[in-house]
Simulated scan of single mutants.
Amino acid sequence: MKIVGRISGDLKELMNTRFDEIADAARAAVRSASEGLQAELRRQTRAAGLGNGLEKAWRLDLYPKVSRRRTLRPAGLVYSKAARLHDAFDDGEMITARNAKWMVIPLPAAKAAGFDRDPHRREGRQIGLIPPKWSNIDAATAKFGALRFVPIGNGARALLVADGKARGDTLARGGAGRATSIPLFLLVKRVRGRKLLDLAAAAKQAEAQLVANLSNILGR
């Protein structure tokens, strides 16, 4: 989404005497509209519960990048560093596993055990070259042993279930000391995402703000 500000018309005399003032005001107008767009997109992402990473992935660049370079054609570019994910939540498109048969979704028991986090990440910083994992099946297997694959329905979904006792710990107990099986992960081949973002509405709002900002400049 590119926010562009332009002042046109017969402004030759005015430009000769007030060029710097008008150029600075135009840049300020574009910055205000662009920052408003970025803030709205981050607000939508936050309200949708998509996480801090996707919220902060909305970035903003102003042009010219050097503020002392004055122009009557300033521009603001609001863009995503996670465009594929933002587009998916804007379109509500079908999401499928990439280079794998299943997508793995941690269930509450897995989250409670910390299997929805990468143990190689500490305090928000990644150590080494191992990418972050949403579902750490290896850690669950190391703790509980081999997980049992349980198909659901027509085979489009399945569960990974931990049975019995964990190594050095008890997974869950029923009456009379009996260990219980606990589903840890849901496996799905595809899922249709819900439309959680409205990028077009945010852009339209920013364009209206830009027009108002530029009209204020011309009305001075």
Results as ranks from 00 to 15, higher is better:
I3K: 01
V4M: 08
G5M: 02
G9E: 05
L11F: 02
M15P: 00
M15F: 05
N16T: 00
D20G: 09
E21D: 15
E21S: 12
R27M: 06
V30R: 07
V30W: 03
R31N: 05
S32D: 12
E35W: 06
G36Q: 00
Q38A: 12
R42P: 06
R42Y: 07
R43I: 06
Q44K: 03
G51R: 07
Y63P: 08
S67T: 13
R68A: 10
R69A: 01
R73Y: 05
G76F: 02
V78S: 04
V78T: 05
A82K: 11
D87A: 15
G92T: 05
E93T: 14
E93H: 14
M94P: 02
M103F: 12
M103C: 14
A110W: 02
K111F: 02
D116N: 15
R117K: 15
R121F: 09
G124A: 11
G124P: 09
I127C: 08
I130M: 14
N136C: 10
T141N: 14
A142K: 15
G145S: 10
L147F: 02
V150D: 03
I152G: 08
I152A: 06
R157A: 15
A158L: 10
L160I: 00
A166K: 10
G168V: 08
G177D: 05
V191N: 08
V191T: 12
R192W: 01
R194Q: 13
L196Q: 12
L210I: 01
L210Q: 02
L210D: 03
N213K: 13
L218K: 07
G219F: 13
R220G: 13
R220C: 05
